[in-house]
Design a protein around this nucleic acid. Structure first.
Lengths: 169, 169
DNA sequence: TTTTGTTTTCAAAAGAAATTGAAAATTGTG
DNA sequence: CACAATTTTCAATTTCTTTTGAAAACAAAA
């Protein structure tokens, strides 16, 4: 069997990255734009993104901006040019760290807040006692996960790949 | 400020659990059924789930079955009764482990397979060289994540809460 | 200031996903 | 077997999400 052509490989990468993201509750197009910029050797303009992915200007704009908000894509300006160029953060550890930071803030933190509040429910019958037990257990666990993620975010790339993973053997 | 009433707290828990899940690409109702069973002191029937969450029979059936497939809910039969009862796995470590196992199999594994395939693309121009670099970097990272998750799944609850998290300080 | 190139917005349309509910299938019981 | 209780299925519907594209806003240059 012959080796795959680079154009086919790129298309497969963009498709899979998008599929994976949408499984994880992230807009498919946002992930495809991210994938496209990850494998682009040079920064791209909005027009190039529209062209490559065959999407509208509004869509391209929205999703590029979301990626910039997530800290996964950077805006680049070239002197003498009015167009904006975009390029993806290529360091995988930084990419993962940014994703952890964002999802933690948007999803884990609000859940922890709710758990805190409902853990203080009045406990005056067997039903509420059982409820409190379950909630406190989940709360304890979530706090640990929270701490772990904080530590991971602070850790640097080498620490992660070397120390942490060797230990995991 | 007075303590929250248990009925309100339960409703808040079910709502938040569902919200969090849908952010993560999981059917909201599936998570609400899960939340309901987590805080139910006794196993519930399909009819009780329909009643509590105000959903249709078909919906209740689909989502309970999905939860059983995920290993998060167990079917219980009472002798002399034809109805099926359902109760949630209450051990949080088991819950998290099951979720990791399922999502890994459904989403990480297929992505790794694609990365393997496209990492072998023919490398005969600067463009394909850059592409290969990026893909191999992502692949290396994903393999590490994969190993880490495997180790986590094998680890037991105490190991997680004690060893791992203490180290994370 | 006016023109021109570029980005942003957002209401409407299209598309995807979840839900319903009634019919069909299944399963235990007399 | 026939009956009754229960679960499962799935086409039609509803609901939620994403995308489009044209108009508005913006910003650099003339």
């Amino acid at each position: 069997m012959g080796a795959m052509k680079v154009q086919e490989a790129k298309a497969r990468f963009i498709e899979s990255w998008g599929k994976m993201a949408s499984d994880w509750g992230i807009n498919r197009t946002m992930a495809q734009v991210h994938a496209l910029l990850l494998i682009a050797p040079e920064p791209l303009t909005a027009d190039q993104i529209m062209e490559e992915l065959d999407i509208s200007r509004g869509n391209a704009n929205m999703n590029v901006r979301a990626l910039v908000d997530w800290g996964l894509v950077h805006k680049k300006l070239r002197n003498g040019e009015r167009k904006e160029y975009f390029c993806a953060e290529k360091d995988m550890w930084t990419v993962v760290r940014q994703i952890i930071i964002n999802r933690k803030r948007r999803e884990l933190d609000p859940m922890l807040k709710v758990l805190d509040e409902i853990a203080g429910v009045e406990e005056n019958c067997p039903e509420s006692t059982h409820f409190c037990e379950v909630v406190r257990d989940i709360r304890k666990f979530s706090c640990k996960a929270n701490q772990t993620l904080d530590a991971l975010v602070k850790a640097d790339s080498n620490w992660f790949t070397n120390t942490f993973l060797t230990m995991m053997r």
